[in-house]
């Protein structure tokens, strides 16, 4: 009994640390980009670059990942900073959902994992783009305003992210220590620790489910298209694997239909336990649940359609 407990504990630790180590460098990169964006790019420049027409804004959000490739963990601090710098919600949300997949690194890894199967790569791009554009369009039409969670301790519009009173001068004395490089280093560290907190909670949740999920269920799902898609979507949510690596895991489920494998790689980068925890740390609770429902629903419908077409 004690040995079994020890083995389970070891497995739990192994999974938690593996997911954390896999995501930490990407989260750090995201925090660094976010800090550079915060310190070096003035708000005026950001607003000048935003397209006036919404459809071009949506296209910008969809394709920005090709220029600024980031993973799903690293993108969250960037999105937070973008919204604080007055980038419209619909562009930020489209970028949030599309960039973790529609970027050169992830597309290449998908191509390698599926042994050069272009159909699966294109299916992944098509489904992710459709979901991102539909969710982005919703935000464009409804003009939802305050998407970000208000933090009573740090709620100031300057986006500096420091703990201080709301009424303050926008020239921060502490930012002058070490100049711009010092400000970037401090912002990066603080942003990483803040988002890392949610990443760790998500890692623990994913590990818990993985360690204690009943064995031997896999063959039950392989023969039925709908069940296999539901199973792989559930697995994507529970495992919380980084977008750069998830296609290798999906490809290892050789008995599953192609649509189920695609469901795993399209849903995971948009919504999983680790991301849920991180979304709840940044966005208002009501938007997180709406976003989760829409993402899961659209992924299910589009992957079922794919399954029917491919069959």
């Amino acid at each position: 009994m004690a040995t079994l407990f020890w083995l389970k504990l070891q497995l739990f630790s192994l999974f938690s640390v593996s997911v954390f180590l896999e995501a930490a460098p990407f989260l750090l990169l995201g925090a660094l980009l976010s800090a550079l964006f915060e310190v070096l790019v003035p708000e005026k420049t950001v607003t000048a670059w935003i397209p006036k027409k919404r459809r071009f804004g949506l296209l910008l959000g969809l394709t920005m990942g090709m220029i600024f490739p980031t993973c799903e963990c690293g993108i969250i601090p960037i999105i937070k900073r973008m919204i604080e710098k007055k980038v419209p919600n619909y562009i930020a949300i489209t970028y949030l959902l599309a960039a973790p997949v529609i970027n050169p690194v992830v597309l290449f890894s998908t191509y390698v994992a599926f042994r050069g199967n272009w159909h699966l790569v294109l299916a992944r791009i098509a489904i992710v783009s459709l979901v991102a554009l539909l969710v982005g369009s919703y935000f464009a039409l409804t003009r939802e305003r305050r998407l970000l969670k208000a933090d009573p301790k740090t709620d100031c519009d300057c986006g500096c992210g420091h703990d201080h009173h709301v009424e303050h001068d926008h020239h921060h004395e502490e930012d002058d220590r070490g100049g711009k490089i010092g400000a970037v280093l401090a912002h990066t560290a603080d942003e990483f620790l803040e988002m890392g907190k949610y990443l760790i909670v998500g890692c623990f949740a994913a590990s818990f489910f993985t360690t204690f999920f009943p064995k031997g269920l896999l063959p039950l799902f392989e023969t039925n298209l709908l069940l296999s898609i539901v199973f792989m979507m559930g697995l994507a949510i529970l495992l919380s694997i980084c977008a750069a690596a998830d296609s290798f895991i999906a490809a290892s489920f050789t008995g599953m239909p192609a649509a189920a494998q695609t469901a795993f790689v399209t849903l995971g980068p948009m919504f999983d336990l680790k991301l849920l925890s991180m979304y709840l740390g940044v966005f208002k609770r009501k938007y997180v649940w709406r976003l989760a429902l829409v993402i899961v629903g659209l992924n299910f419908i589009l992957n079922c359609l794919l399954g029917v077409i491919v069959r």
Binding site: L11, L14, F15, V19, K215, L217, L239, F248, I249, S252
Partner: peptide, 10 residues
């Protein structure tokens, strides 16, 4: 630690 570890348990 290999990717197989991530799938090892269930």
């Amino acid at each position: 630690i290999t990717p197989a570890d991530l799938l090892q348990s269930p």
